[in-house]
Design a protein around this nucleic acid. Structure first.
Lengths: 338, 338
DNA sequence: TTGAAAGCGATACCAT
DNA sequence: ATGGTATCGCTTTCAA
């Protein structure tokens, strides 16, 4: 078995109280001499304090729970990276929960995290259902949303303003001289990342006087934001419209899907068709041609979410939300029209 | 404060011992009637057992530690996905540790995991230094390596055979009619993923009678396996050799880097030059053209590693290692030469 | 079937 | 400066 504080005390001929004081660096309460003695005993025994026991008495586990729908997604993993960074810096650890977008698994995890007495929750990238919210609220620890938000439930979030970002992407296309622009979007029923981006797209068209009175804006909507969705939607777009000169894809993966399909159709990007993405994932710079896109500062968002959470853990107050800045990353998939 | 077992006991007019029995479903020791009573109290109070207290008395935390150098890497995140999958299925949780390839942070984490009394360790994708090994050994819990191995230290691992896989990739190129083949490799000093792949490449050349007596095989070695490395190495390759018809890149990212650079140099893939990658990351199917590559079953590897670990945690025996199968995924970046 | 009590490994208060 | 001890929330003998 692992040595306990008792073993150390015995070994150093002092009481466990003294060992504890030294362990916790409570400055006063022991002499330099006994300190050395105890440290030596610790060394010899290879003693490591038991965080579980500590957690019990202090009622603090120095652990937070982090839930994401899919780690293997490049967006999620960047967020996680940021979260872990500050969590570790602040001396806490993260229990990682991959929910696989399953309601059951999410609830299951929330329960688990409650029992493990995590001190905070970061919930990322998916819709916060009532059941999730109830479960989180019941835990009575701070929580923050990242890359998502909830209209209904009052939880602080950190994300980019999707509508603004989509507006910026569309405006970029317009400023480059494009007039006939289509959008490849996620699900319009998706209140978090679907509709707002569509709204931003439409609003830009309107503001720049590109919305025709006689027709709906060209948005091709799918269910998700995947590469496959991009392919499908792009195929539909090409079948339906022939005079489009630029497309705004609601995610980088969709944009890559569109580019891939365009390539197979012998449509040259950006010469014949311009494409702008959304996210600025690593793949966007790896694309051929490198993808112009609107950046979400994912790692920074992860970091900020963690910082917000720790703030809440200290003050007890439920913090404010944070809108992170988006930014157009100009690469080579958008052509300047004369 | 959260209700404790005491509160439940009081609320139900029974002893905490009885509550505990019911909580743990120790079948016998209580009547149907009191069970209902207790369950009702639990419900009313919203009681959740405290896993910390449980962990203390049972000396079991139901959590494992998982260390990876970089979650945001697509390879790592797939492994993590697999690990989490079975860990959760088996009722445990994972404390996720992103080491950022820093020795200090790794050691720091190992210490932390030791204090948090995790029941097992999964160490992924990086070189196991002596210091890491010592730290792990000192924890006295099972550990398994994934996507890496150690010659020096005796820890079970799960990975594909890099040499065999590299051999297969090279052989594929040869079977497609290529004779003049170059390799873009990682660091030859990297005993885990660098040298073995180079060896596999060379051996295939030899076996198929393609190694010229008067010259070294064409391997262009860098330091890592990144997109940038791929670009740099490919540039060097093109400057040095003009008659190569195919290249084997030691990672998909490198392959994409090479393809990107080739595109800019106006070298057409696969018409003028064939490229095969290694890993089968998601990006490989998104590439233009879709990348032929040798697959590592990453999620399955993650799963297997976790299974192995849990086996070790139950039996106490340090398990065997597992070589996972690799497989050529044929897509469109390799041309059949006549 | 049920309860009292010891103990898991720490912390912190109260004495000395 | 140091030690004794109650306590954290739970599990598990041992008695009743």
């Amino acid at each position: 078995m692992k040595p306990t504080i008792k073993d150390v005390a015995r070994h150093a001929n002092v009481s466990i109280a003294t060992v504890s004081r030294i362990l916790n660096q409570t400055s006063v309460g022991y002499s330099k001499k006994t300190e050395k003695l105890v440290m030596q005993a610790i060394e010899e025994l290879g003693y490591r304090p038991n965080a579980v026991a500590r957690g019990l008495i202090n009622n603090k586990t120095q652990t937070i729970g982090v839930l994401f729908p899919d780690v293997s997604g490049m967006l999620t993993s960047e967020l996680l990276y940021g979260v872990e960074e500050v969590t570790h810096r602040l001396g806490h650890s993260v229990i990682f929960c991959n929910t696989s977008s399953s309601g059951e698994k999410t609830l299951d995890y929330l329960q688990l995290l409650s029992e493990k007495r995590v001190e905070g929750i970061i919930f990322g990238s998916s819709f916060l259902t009532d059941a999730y919210y109830e479960a989180i609220a019941a835990m009575n620890v701070p929580a923050v949303l990242v890359s998502t938000k909830s209209q209904k439930h009052q939880l602080p979030y950190v994300k980019v303003d999707d509508k603004d970002a989509a507006y910026a992407a569309t405006a970029h296309l317009i400023k480059k001289g494009h007039r006939r622009i289509a959008m490849l979007s996620g699900n319009p029923a998706d209140i978090v990342a679907g509709k707002p981006r569509i709204d931003g797209f439409k609003e830009a068209l309107l503001d720049f006087g590109l919305a025709r009175i006689d027709e709906e804006p060209l948005v091709f909507a799918g269910n998700g934001f995947s590469y496959e969705d991009g392919r499908d939607l792009f195929t539909r777009l090409i079948k339906a419209e022939s005079d489009v000169t630029a497309v705004f894809a609601a995610s980088d993966e969709m944009a890559i899907g569109a580019m891939s399909t365009a390539y197979q159709m012998n449509i040259r990007v950006p010469d014949e068709l311009s494409i702008i993405g959304y996210d600025n994932l690593k793949i966007s710079e790896m694309a051929i041609p490198p993808l112009t896109t609107v950046e979400q500062p994912l790692r920074a968002m992860g970091r900020k979410a963690a910082e917000l959470l720790f703030e809440g853990m200290e003050t007890g107050a439920t913090g404010k939300s944070i809108i992170m800045p988006h930014r157009i990353i100009e690469r080579q998939s958008v052509k300047q029209l004369v």
